[in-house]
Design a protein around this nucleic acid. Structure first.
Lengths: 350, 350
DNA sequence: TTGTATGCGTTATCAC
DNA sequence: GTGATAACGCATACAA
């Protein structure tokens, strides 16, 4: 019985520069020269090499190349976000990837799902792949696990929230300003009883947004503690909170939701209560069909393009100049009036 | 004057297993054994090594390790989608990444933006990184550029649309069935004049959706050619098309939009015409706040989780068994009645 | 239980 | 111009 070669034992091998060299009838260093556009190769020889490359379907092994290369660069960066399915992080990823691609860098992606452990594990994986830099949406309050990267000179940029216990560049939105602007927008229309729905207070962005709320409310006599709910991490929780707040007196005339999960629950609840057309509503984060709602949704929109671009720009700049001072960029948010935020308080409440 | 060491000339070097070995006072092979959980290391020695690893902030260089490894595996896969900012591809990416992460694989990501050239370039980059497999949302009608990967035994899975000129597994939605179901849903409520808005006919998904429309319309006497528009690639174009179609007699009583960009333009146009509450409307692809619209949006929802999981599953299965026959998976879509699709035709039109 | 020699595919150095 | 040869950081085979 003839022996059949087991594909597991003799695995398919990719052609190497040596294979190319042999086929082209040159030394393998010459192939390397051609592939790296180095000088001192006769056009004639060059063509022979290129022909062999095409014939063999050769693809450079850039992992082998980066191990030997002087600068140890891999032309890749790592990006860690909370959840890719969240449109905010989706478009952030999009922008970063585009920026990197334009500079011939590849992007390794990971989702932390809010877990500091997973975040640190991913950094380990990326570090093992020797990424040239990292862009991270940090969780928890300790990013000191990045020490090996810092020591190796791998730059890190924190985005959406600042990192802790390690020096690095960061890019965040003007969260507090945004909510404060929303409050002032409502106050200008005559609202004083403004409710606020927040997510976990442990997360930087929500701490900041709540701070903006309190600051601006202080200007019109302070917020009613009964109208502030935090720790709402699902739309169901937000739904409950709205039923609760609006079921008791004094009923607020306006409502601010601090993210899109909360927005969904809150609008549903207002609808359920028949208050959707009578309660002013402003949401943090823009959503796809906001202007098709009735009333169309007034939002505080983050500039995801600017955030992503700035993060990527910071990273590549530091790759060029590791000695520059660290920068903490703050990206403005924008209040987009569409209708829901321009509903005036009922006469009776004045 | 003392010479300052130029960081460019003496770059920061990551610690290697030799550094670890020296510090631990053992041979470097022993370090390798510890790091790879190989047997035959005294617990005592093991601890010494681990201490040195921690002290030096050592991170394995897995790119160096994969080049020498017998199976040549890099524990990474490449994913190429159209546009990460599109929620459909965002959640697809999310699912794939999650599946890969659970199997200790990293995901390299790229956006083709519908360009076949960029798609092929990205494959080249991924190939150079020696990814273990590829998941691709293909563009154009020729994926034969994947030949080097096929020859090397790197599996490819096409998702959302089938690839051409190369054999591979694929995972697509039941596009035609979905639109046909929408037509029948509308027909059951008494509609016969149903309009259809399509994107470029060159893209597989839209060819299929249009086919489903024609098939089901044939069952109720055929579609009116004046009520079919294709090649609509922006919401503005969709807006125009609706104004056009609904501005002339006979006016349709129902409308199907073949993707979310078109949906936005179409709903705006219906609103503009004051027909939003009187025209039945079904959209392909679910959107975030669909149920907050009034009327709430009836949609044909793709099961992005199932699509992504199936694609990832196919890839990892083939990684295990390269000899299995190729499979073309079809994932069912689901008609989600919410309101807009249940509007009945006006009496006068019967 | 531990260490040495060798090789992976590439880039760097230097001689021809 | 071109090609030997060394080196990168690690895994493999095999010796001790």
């Amino acid at each position: 019985m003839p022996t059949v070669p087991d594909p597991q034992v003799t695995p398919l091998r990719a052609p190497t520069i040596k294979d190319v060299a042999e086929r082209a009838g040159v030394g393998f260093k010459t192939v390397s020269r051609v592939l790296n556009d180095e000088p001192n190769v006769r056009p004639e020889t060059r063509d022979k090499v290129l022909d062999a490359v095409a014939a063999l379907g050769y693809r450079r092994n850039s992992i082998a190349s980066s191990i030997r290369r002087r600068d140890q660069r891999t032309s890749s960066i790592g990006l860690i976000v909370d959840d890719l399915a969240n449109p905010f992080f989706g478009s952030l990823t999009r922008v970063v990837q585009e920026y990197a691609q334009a500079r011939d860098h590849l992007v390794l992606i990971g989702s932390s799902d809010g877990s500091p452990e997973r975040e640190s594990e991913l950094v380990g994986e990326f570090g093992a792949r020797r990424v040239d830099g990292l862009i991270i949406v940090p969780n928890g309050d300790d990013q000191s696990y990045l020490e090996p990267e810092r020591a190796r000179g791998v730059p890190v940029v924190f985005v959406d929230r600042p990192g802790a216990r390690i020096e690095a560049d960061s890019v965040v939105s003007e969260n507090a300003d945004g909510v404060a602007a929303a409050v002032r927008h409502l106050a200008a229309a005559g609202h004083t009883r403004i409710a606020y729905l927040g997510d976990y207070e442990t997360i930087y962005t929500f701490t900041e947004r709540l701070r903006g709320f309190r600051t601006a409310m202080a200007e019109i006599g302070g917020a009613d503690p009964r109208h502030i709910r935090t720790g709402l991490h699902t739309s169901a929780a937000a739904h409950e909170a709205v039923l609760d707040i609006f079921g008791a007196a004094p009923r607020p005339t306006a409502l601010i939701a601090s993210n899109n999960r909360i927005t969904v629950g809150a609008v549903h609840a207002l609808q359920h209560l028949g208050l959707r057309d009578r309660t002013a509503f402003i949401a943090f984060d823009d959503v796809e069909l906001a202007d098709l709602l009735r009333p169309a949704l007034t939002v505080i929109a983050q500039d995801t393009t600017a955030i992503g671009t700035e993060a990527a720009r910071s990273l590549f700049e530091r790759l060029r100049d590791p000695a520059a001072p660290y920068r903490g960029a703050r990206v403005p948010v924008r209040l987009v009036p569409r209708s829901s935020g321009e509903i005036t308080p009922p006469e009776s409440s004045l």
